[in-house]
Simulated assay, not measured.
Amino acid sequence: MKSINLVALAVFGTTALTGCGVEQGEVQDDASSLEAPAQEFTSPFEDASKDSVPSVALDGRAAAAAEGVRGMAASPGLMGLASSWYSGSVAAGATQHWYWNNSSLTSAYSVGLSPTGASTTSGCRFEVTRTWDVQQYGGEREFHFSIKNIGSIACGTNILLASRERTSTWATGGIDVGASKSWTWNNANPLTATHIVGLSPSGSTSANPCQLEVTRTWYAQQPGGEREFKFTVKNIGAIACQGDVQLAVVTSANSSWSTGSLSPGASGSWVWNNANPLDRVYAPGLSPAGALGTTPCQLEVTKSSYQQVIDSDGTTERKYYFTVQNVGSLTCSGTLLLNYL
């Protein structure tokens, strides 16, 4: 099966997103400033349900080069992507573990997917289940991620690796094995921007790399109106170590709309149809509203996935699914920001 035709994508990327839309209820079956964060705190919301990943890691840079994407693999920033390559066929329910070696020490990375291989009766659907950063002995940074076929048929996906240079950075300080630290980025402006977090770990030894993972990100609105971006970092390796946060801001807007009112613990799900161009990597964010008294409004994008379907007229279509949850204690709403890298 062939990967995305990169030349064609360069042309299609200029096409307007005519016909794209949002439908509520289509739920999945189931020079950077060296600023310190305004506040460090302990998170009560850490997700311990992450999928395990295969022990054998696949080399993304080698896969891209083998497909002839050498220019992109060697020149990050071409077409807005660091690189792109094909996963090969993945069984329904199976997971792949990929890494991108010699990663930039000052960038945040994000992974998009363009599935391929849908049948007329079953879509091809993938999600990114985890992302984390590794420092090998000697100083090399690797960006790792896992993808999972969450559909019902064996198929594959074009993997879209995007990066964004940091706008702010600071040190995590030491983090013990298995421990987590969380931060709040105050005044997360403009209100239309989304945020992605990368990590440049340090402290690896000849016996063990330093491995740090961003386990969750979410947004809060304080009663005075201030928006905050919050995130949690966990040491998932075998040695205590530290790292530098690479915080990037994304302002390229695809669309935005209201989440509607969500009670504490409740979720809302949407699908973005005709998710074109096919090399677009989405970076959804939230601007919560409705903080009251001393209680903030807190919203989180908890899940997202990409699907290829074959429509009734025989054409293929990519869809982007995502779920927003109210992770606070107050009924409130917000604006969902469908931004992209």
Rank of each mutant, 00 (worst) to 15 (best):
I196G: 04
A193L: 08
A240P: 00
K234F: 03
H195F: 15
C210P: 02
T194H: 02
G237F: 02
F231N: 00
A238D: 14
S202T: 14
I236Q: 08
N189M: 10
N208V: 09
Q221C: 09
N189C: 02
A220C: 11
E226W: 06
S204V: 06
V197L: 14
H195G: 01
G225Q: 10
A240N: 13
A207E: 13
R227K: 14
P190C: 08
L199E: 04
Q222C: 00
E213H: 01
I236P: 02
G224Q: 13
R227W: 09
C210G: 11
N208Y: 14
A207H: 05
Q222D: 09
T205R: 00
K234P: 00
P209S: 14
Q222G: 05
A188I: 07
K230V: 00
Q222N: 14
G225S: 09
S206Q: 14
R227S: 11
Y219G: 00
E213P: 02
S202H: 10
G237K: 00
S200P: 05
V233Y: 02
S202G: 13
I236W: 00
A220T: 14
S204G: 14
A238F: 03
V233T: 13
L191C: 05
Q222W: 08
R216K: 12
A207N: 14
S206A: 15
V233S: 04
V197K: 03
G203P: 03
K234H: 06
P201L: 11
S202M: 09
H195E: 11
S202D: 13
N235T: 13
T192Y: 12
E228D: 14
G237H: 06
I196H: 02
A238Y: 03
P223A: 09
Q222E: 15
E213L: 04
A220W: 03
W218R: 06
P209E: 12
P201Y: 05
Y219C: 06
P190W: 05
A193K: 04
E213F: 02
A207G: 12
P190R: 08
G198A: 08
P223W: 09
T215I: 13
A240H: 06
T205I: 04
L199C: 04
V214M: 06
V214W: 02
G225P: 01
N208D: 14
F229T: 02
N189Y: 12
T205W: 05
L212N: 09
L199V: 15
P190E: 09
A193T: 13
C210R: 07
S206G: 15
F231Q: 01
I239Y: 02
W218K: 06
L191M: 11
G225Y: 05
E213T: 07
T215K: 07
G225I: 08
T192S: 15
I239C: 07
C210Y: 03
Q211W: 02
V233F: 01
